[in-house]
Deep mutational scan, measured.
Amino acid sequence: SEHYTFDGEEQAIRFMRDMEAKNLKYELQIHNGKYIIQVD
């Protein structure tokens, strides 16, 4: 699995939509205002 970190919500949402379009599962965590997305 890989981790991707985003500072902004818009970037994170765009990335998650992209993952959904590719049928990839992901998990979102928010730490200290950063959006951390783990992709299986």
Rank of each mutant, 00 (worst) to 15 (best):
S1L: 12
S1F: 13
S1H: 12
S1C: 14
S1G: 11
E2N: 13
E2L: 14
E2M: 15
H3Q: 13
H3F: 15
H3I: 15
H3S: 13
H3T: 15
H3V: 15
H3E: 11
H3C: 15
Y4I: 06
Y4T: 03
Y4D: 01
Y4P: 02
T5D: 04
T5Y: 12
T5A: 08
T5L: 09
F6I: 03
F6W: 02
F6L: 03
D7G: 04
D7Q: 06
D7Y: 11
G8L: 15
G8V: 14
G8M: 13
G8E: 15
E9G: 03
E10N: 05
E10Q: 08
E10P: 05
E10L: 07
E10Y: 06
E10F: 05
E10S: 07
Q11I: 06
Q11E: 14
Q11D: 14
A12Y: 05
A12R: 02
A12P: 00
A12T: 02
A12V: 04
A12K: 01
A12G: 02
A12Q: 01
I13N: 11
I13Y: 12
I13S: 07
I13V: 09
R14C: 14
R14P: 05
R14S: 12
R14Q: 13
R14F: 06
F15Q: 01
F15W: 04
F15A: 04
F15D: 00
F15Y: 03
F15L: 03
F15V: 03
M16A: 05
M16Y: 02
M16F: 02
R17F: 07
R17L: 12
R17E: 08
R17T: 06
R17K: 12
R17M: 12
R17C: 11
D18E: 14
D18S: 10
D18I: 12
D18H: 10
D18Q: 12
D18A: 12
M19I: 10
M19C: 15
M19N: 03
E20S: 06
E20F: 06
E20W: 06
E20T: 06
E20L: 07
E20G: 04
A21F: 09
A21N: 09
A21Y: 09
A21K: 10
A21V: 07
A21S: 10
K22R: 11
K22W: 07
K22M: 12
K22L: 13
N23E: 06
N23R: 08
N23V: 03
N23W: 05
N23K: 10
N23Y: 06
N23S: 08
N23L: 07
L24H: 07
L24K: 09
L24D: 01
K25F: 08
K25Q: 08
K25S: 09
K25W: 09
K25Y: 09
Y26E: 00
Y26A: 10
Y26F: 11
E27Y: 13
E27D: 09
E27W: 12
E27A: 11
L28F: 11
L28Q: 02
L28E: 01
L28A: 04
L28W: 10
L28G: 01
Q29H: 13
Q29Y: 14
Q29T: 14
Q29S: 12
Q29E: 09
Q29V: 13
I30F: 09
I30L: 07
I30H: 05
I30S: 03
I30D: 02
H31S: 11
H31V: 15
H31I: 15
H31W: 11
H31Y: 11
H31R: 13
H31L: 13
N32R: 06
N32P: 02
N32S: 06
N32K: 07
N32H: 08
G33V: 01
G33N: 06
G33E: 04
G33M: 03
K34Y: 09
K34W: 09
K34H: 09
K34P: 00
K34E: 04
Y35M: 02
Y35W: 14
Y35V: 02
I36D: 03
I36H: 11
I36K: 04
I37Q: 00
I37P: 00
I37T: 01
I37V: 12
I37N: 00
Q38A: 12
Q38S: 14
Q38Y: 15
V39F: 06
V39S: 03
V39T: 05
V39G: 03
D40R: 12
D40G: 12
D40L: 15
